[in-house]
């Protein structure tokens, strides 16, 4: 967090709106301001449907904000964010490629010689604990293993920014903790700027340097920003036992709870309408 480093990801009054099927304009996120410093791990937490992922897509350049702008290393973002790696919530591996080819693809398309790309992919597979699974196709891997491959697929390109959209959402509780620790371990090796979206506050506090809270949608806003001072290196399952963790959790949850309830009420009303 040196002052001289440019901000890795900055959103300036970013507003995202969608045209609904009936022609009305739906504002998902309103005037979001967010800055992720170089090497900082920021988690965005909010109730379901608040537009957390929308914000991430703006940072990735997959979505254009209706107003405001995104800056990547102090340069306005036009088109796709070439400095970012994106870990999707849903399965995004190429089902017709083996694990190793899935990991190597990021290098292949850059024109890295095939042998070198494969060697590096194998190394990455090993570091996510799948060294022996190189020849497997995604359908032959478990959900957790597919996430590991996806992580290797993103990290092999050595992006300066890591965008993660509830990447461990579909996994069971134990696998989530293991994946969380793996992520922290890999992240500690070369601190990238991370923007991590989740609906799980505990996960957010355990992983991040900062936790940002969003209000319920529509027109979701950023309503809170906490610095997580828990010491590193952390172990996801152990850090949850600490007193500071509980204090932080209570404090943030008191704000988040109201929004979760609002989001819940809105979603049930939307269902009834």
């Amino acid at each position: 967090m040196e002052k001289t480093e440019p901000t890795a990801v900055a959103l300036d009054d970013a507003t995202v709106a969608f045209r609904l099927a009936d022609g009305r304009l739906y504002t998902a996120v309103e005037k979001a301001n967010l800055a992720v410093a170089h090497g900082e791990f920021v988690a965005i937490v909010g109730p379901t449907g608040c537009g957390k992922s929308t914000l991430l897509n703006v940072a990735a350049g997959l979505l254009k904000p209706a107003a405001g702008a995104a800056r990547i290393f102090d340069k306005p973002l036009a088109g796709l964010n070439r400095d970012a790696g994106y870990l999707f919530q849903a399965d995004a591996l190429f089902p017709w490629k083996t694990a190793i080819d899935n990991v190597a693809i990021g290098l292949d398309i850059r024109g890295t010689p095939r042998a070198e790309a494969l060697a590096r992919a194998q190394k990455w597979l090993t570091s996510v604990g799948l060294g022996a699974f190189a020849g497997r196709y995604p359908h032959m891997l478990s959900g957790g293993q597919r996430k590991r491959v996806a992580l290797a697929q993103v990290l092999i390109r050595d992006p300066k920014i890591l965008l993660m959209d509830e990447p461990f959402g579909p996994l069971d509780a134990q696998t989530r903790q293991i994946m969380g620790n793996l992520l922290l371990e890999l992240w500690t090796a070369d601190r990238k700027a991370v923007l991590f979206v989740t609906h799980d506050l505990e996960e957010a506090i355990a992983l991040a340097d900062r936790v940002v809270i969003m209000s319920a949608g529509p027109s979701a806003r950023i309503i809170g920003d906490w610095r997580i001072t828990l010491p590193r290196p952390r172990d996801i399952s152990e850090v949850r036992m600490e007193k500071d963790f509980h204090a932080l959790h209570r404090e943030i949850w008191s704000v988040l709870k109201d929004e979760v309830m609002k989001g819940y009420v809105q979603s049930t009303q939307a269902g009834a309408a």
Partner: peptide, 22 residues
């Protein structure tokens, strides 16, 4: 799937590479 397509784009594929790999 849109996710696979977006993944291809985020991994740096251009149109020609999307054609070939996706």
């Amino acid at each position: 799937p849109t996710t696979v397509l977006d993944n291809g784009r985020m991994l740096g594929m251009n149109e020609r590479q999307l054609m070939r790999h996706v």
